[in-house]
Each structure stands twice: as structure tokens, then as C-alpha cells.
Design a binder for these strands. Structure first.
Lengths: 344, 344
DNA sequence: TTGTACGCGTTATCAT
DNA sequence: ATGATAACGCGTACAA
């Protein structure tokens, strides 16, 4: 059995291809009976329209794509759910497209825009740094959502929804300082990496400075193991272990992700130490596990639901009026758990 | 600026479209200089080939798609990494495609197969139950990977890699019995749902029977809250809380997923009880958190890496020889953590 | 209400 | 080495 096309169906039914097309696409001016016949034979012959051909021919679709770099992040899940719900609510279709680590997300977007005749794009997550020039090639409305958007981007030229990573991480470290901690370690990503880790480290440094604490580079832990995911529990575990086994003193750890924090906790427990009695631990992201971990972990909770809703709102606004631009910076919440305590 | 096509580039360069095509696709018989010129103008004009047109024209691609239902599952991450690596190693491109909850994964596959001229498909995760008839429509090699494949499927007719959920959950519950537990609760998915939860419940019942323990329906907890993800920590928390507040006695809990187990632990800690001194907790999946949680959680670890590698191997085998079929059932490991203990 | 014919952007075949 | 042209499968303007 060869691949069935619209012509085959037309021939079998003894009608023209346009009639079949009308049947498929629910066009009004078609006889009910012929439509029934056509749909029946389509079922019988397992005919499936070729999407490439449709996309090629169609001048527009009703698809909104979400581009996401590194599906791994559990943090995105709750946002995706909102996207999916809202997009469907507005009768659009939802296309989730993963961007591989080494791929350029804007290139991918440009390609997808042509291929699928997208109505809108959401760039989800990651550290976003692209030239205005490149972004301007995008014909279709888009919103940058979540995480650090590099300063390079002219914020006036595009819509975005974000949290100020520097400020929020400052908030957390400042909180630790106010609890009396003077020796605070940070577990972050490699210095070379252009990532949110860099921004969060910046906030850390700023907070120490403002609290008249010196920055000791031995308390700044980077991931130097290429094979290790920089946001993983395993990395947090290894880093904290190394720290504990060194002679560097510290009373608190700020992990730039909750997963790292969980890993760090494990290392501390293994040394027979207690949290928060011996060490205070703080994370960042506000994923489920911070609440369910024992002890619960102090963290920065990004308002994912609200951010996702705003992202969608702005995107649709832009779809209505292509000149529309809006940038929104959300404030995160510092959720105090049982992993941090006042000292001295 | 209008959308640039291959014709525009050809016109600008003063060459024919076929020459441009040759330049794009690295064809051999083309003058190096004209090729350079063409690639240069392509850059300058930001020309991006339309994939729909390419897919339409091309008789085949080198793409392997992974279809995944509900990206949520952290358990899939490690498998995806293997897929991506192996697929690239063989010079294929990797396409991850999410299937929405209400969508039929085989329908999606059929569509994608035509649209992208796929070389192979991997169905990842979930409870798979489709008629042989439907599966037979698939022209392209595929492998079903992970989780419960319904008995409905004629296993001789397709390739698969799986773990026997009934047997593995039996293994865990049997282990709890052997530790002396006689009152074991299970937290699972709604009975109506055709899911792996059903299979794991079956293993639970079987193990109890074989250990001469009666099955008390009050110790079987289903998720009756539609809005609650059946595999989430929150559900585990709510379910365990309900159980603790009832007068139903139990000394151990078997959670059909690790996330549920974590949630259950939280509920127990909140009541001021200890794990494993007061209650033993066991999970299923073997995700990272079971190791990093405090206490570490006894779980069934599915050999995800090996399973993913086998999946890929079988798929390529099938691509080579389309009549090839292989089914492989993996045995999982029971990882003993600190969340379970012998009683009495 | 229905059928014919053209074109969407690309690749492949065949000339040249 | 290069260019004209025929497909790929579909939607739609237009004619009937």
C-alpha cells in the first residue's frame, strides 16, 4: 500500500481534490452527503494530510510556539501548563519545541517561523543574549520569558517578562547576613558560562559588600566538572562536600538553584552535621521539593504562574497590535523554610 | 522587507535556483567561487530555507523522533540525554515531540512520519495500549520504550524495551513484607486510569497475597482529586495526611512514584513521626531525589541508561532491517535506602 | 455545490 | 559547472 494523498481520496470518491480539501477543513459550501462520503473513505484508507504541504500552502496558522532550552528544568513545568491552557483557551495550537544546548535559539525561531507560519513565539528560560539586529529579523510577535536577559538587549525593543536575578539573589544573601551570618558560601556555575549563575553571583557579591563583609574567593564554588550538570543535585553534593573537607569556614550556603541546595544538604548530613543548627542552607527557584524536603528549604520563589500568565497576555497583545511592546519585571518571594536560622 | 526565498537569492546572485540549492546542501559539483558568493549573499539577506518545502520535496530525512507524553516526568531526562547523544553520534537529527495528554500518540506519530519523513520513532513512557491494526499503519521503524505496555498489544508484532511494572512493584512490596511489615499502604493512581499505577497496584496485591496478608481496601489510596497530578509530591502529601488522620493502621507505605513518596514523608514528619522508626516509606522510579533526600528513600531504580541504549540499538537494528523485531524486558534494582526498616 | 488549474519553496532530473 | 523545469501534496481562486 502506497502513501495515500488527497488525490487518491478524490479519485476514489469520484470528486475533485478541492472537494476533499473542503471536507477536511470544514468549509461551508459542500454537500453534507459528499462530505460524509469523503470523511468515511478517508477513515477507511487511513489518509493523513501531509503537514509540510499544508504549511507550505497556508499563509498562516494558528500556532504559538514555546521554545525552551534544556527541558530539564523542573521549574518550567508549571509555566508550561499555564501556556498550554491559555493558548488552547484562545483557540490556538500549542507547539513546544526544545532547543538543544549548542543551538542558537533565535535561529531556531526564525526557521520555525517560516516552517510553521507561527502566530507567536515564547522564549522560555535561560540567559538570553542576542543582538538587536538578529532579534529584529523576527517577523512574528515574541516574548522573552523568565531568567536573566542580558543587558546587551535593548529592552525597549522587545517584550519580556523576567525576574531580576541580581536583585533577588541579593535579597537572599542579604537575608542571610541579617540573620547574623558572616561567612556565607555560594555554589554557582562556571565563571565562563554566560548564565543566570553569573547574575546570581553578582547579587551575592553586592549583598556582602553592602553588609560590610569581605568577599572570600574560597567561598565561591564553581563547577569545574564539564560532565556535571551545573544545576543538579549531584553538583551541589560534590561542591558542598569539597567545601566541608577544606578548611574554609562558613556558616551558611547560598545555592543558586534548589537542586544544588538539596545536594548540599546531603553532603552536610553525611558529615553528621545538622541543618540549620550547624549550617544554614538557602536555594533559589522555589520548586516543589523545597517545601517537601526535610527540613524545608529557604528559597526564592519566582511567581511562575503569574509570570506565565503575563507572558501570554503580552504575547496576545502583541499579536493584536504588532507595534505593542511591554517589559515586566516580577518580584520574587523569599520563602523562609527550616533550613536557615539566626546565629550568635 | 518581504520574505526571502531561494529564488530571490538566485536572482540577486545572477544564478539559477538549482545552483543555490547546491550551495545550501553542500553538493559536490559546484564552483567554489559561486558557492562562496551565494553563501555570502544568503548571510547578508538573512535567507532561511523553508523546512516545509524541503520536507515536502525530500523523499527522506535523517530524523529520529522521540514522542513523549507529558514532559513532566523527571524520570525521562536521563533517557533523553542518551537518545540525543546516540542519535547524533550516528549522524541523525533528533526531534523531541511532546504529545498532549488527550492526543493519541500513534496518530501524532503517523502525522509526523509524513510531515518529517522520519527514519525512526521512539515512543517514550506511559502506559501504551493501541490496537495492532493501528500500529501496523506505521511505515517507519519504531520502538516502544519504558513503562507498561498493555497486554492488548501483540508483543510479537513490535519492538519494545520495558520493565515489568507488576513484577517490580511486587518485588518492593515483597521486600517490605519480608522486613516484617504486615500493614502496608499503597498510594496510587485512580482506578479508572489506564496507567502504570494499575500495574503497580497489581504487583502490590500479588505480593500481599503471596505473603498471606489480607488486602485491606482502606490501605489502598487513590487520587480522587482531578486537579491534582497523580504522580506529584503534593498528591503524596495529601494522601498520606489523609491516611494518618484516619484510624487505619499501617507501618509502611509503598508510593508508586518517588515524588509521591517524598510528599508522604512530609506528611509523616509534620505529624511528628519519624522515618523509618515509625513508618517505612518506599518509592518507585529511582530518580535523583531518592538518594539526596534525608533519609534516602528505598526505591525501585529502573536502569534508564541501559534501557535507553537498548532502545536506540534496537531502533537502528530495525532501520537496517525493517523486518527486525526485538522485545526486551529489563529487571530493575531495589535500592535500599534509609527510609525502610525491619520491624518487630 | 463542484472541479480545474495554479502556485507555495524546495530538490532532483535532465539538458546544456 | 550550471540553468530550466518537473515534481512534492495541498489550498484556493476561478470557472462551471
Amino acid at each position: 500500500m502506497e502513501v495515500t494523498t488527497i488525490k487518491d481520496i478524490a479519485r476514489i470518491c469520484g470528486v475533485g481534490v478541492s472537494t476533499v480539501s473542503r471536507a477536511i477543513n470544514n468549509h461551508p459550501d459542500i454537500n453534507e452527503d459528499t462530505k460524509k462520503l469523503i470523511l468515511k473513505t478517508i477513515k477507511e484508507h487511513n489518509y493523513i494530510p501531509n503537514n509540510s504541504a499544508r504549511n507550505l500552502k497556508r499563509l498562516e496558522s494558528n500556532t504559538i510556539a514555546v521554545l525552551i532550552k534544556g527541558i530539564t528544568n523542573p521549574f518550567f513545568n508549571s509555566m508550561l501548563k499555564v501556556f498550554e491552557k491559555e493558548i488552547h483557551k484562545k483557540k490556538y495550537s500549542f507547539l513546544l519545541h526544545r532547543v538543544e544546548e549548542q543551538e542558537d535559539e533565535v535561529d531556531v525561531a526564525l526557521e520555525l517561523e517560516k516552517e510553521k507560519r507561527l502566530k507567536g513565539i515564547i522564549f522560555l528560560g535561560g540567559y538570553f543574549s542576542h543582538s538587536v539586529e538578529k532579534l529584529n529579523q523576527m517577523k512574528v510577535p515574541f516574548v522573552l520569558s523568565t531568567g536573566g536577559i542580558s543587558e546587551i538587549i535593548d529592552k525597549k525593543n522587545c517584550s519580556y517578562v523576567m525576574v531580576d536575578d541580581v536583585q533577588e539573589s541579593y535579597r537572599m544573601v542579604d537575608y542571610l547576613c541579617k540573620l547574623g551570618h558572616k561567612k556565607i558560601a555560594i555554589i554557582t556555575t562556571p565563571p565562563s558560562e554566560e548564565s543566570i549563575g553569573k547574575l546570581r553571583l553578582e547579587g551575592y557579591k553586592k549583598a556582602l559588600k553592602d553588609n560590610q563583609l569581605s568577599i572570600d574567593s574560597r567561598r565561591i564554588l564553581y563547577n569545574d566538572d564539564e560532565s556535571l550538570d551545573s544545576f543538579s543535585m549531584k553538583y551541589g553534593y560534590e561542591a558542598a562536600k569539597k567545601l566541608l573537607e577544606s578548611d574554609v569556614e562558613f556558616t551558611a550556603v547560598f545555592a543558586i538553584s534548589d537542586s544544588i541546595a538539596v545536594g548540599a544538604c546531603k553532603a552536610i548530613f553525611e558529615k553528621g552535621k545538622r541543618i540549620p543548627e550547624d549550617y544554614s542552607i538557602a536555594g533559589y527557584d522555589g520548586i516543589d521539593i523545597t517545601f517537601y524536603y526535610h527540613p524545608s528549604i529557604t528559597t526564592i520563589r519566582q511567581p511562575t504562574i503569574e509570570m506565565a500568565e503575563e507572558t501570554i497576555r503580552i504575547l496576545f497583545e502583541t499579536i493584536e497590535d504588532s507595534s505593542y511592546k511591554e517589559g515586566k519585571i516580577f518580584t520574587a518571594d523569599l520563602i523562609v523554610g527550616n533550613s536557615t536560622k539566626r546565629i550568635r
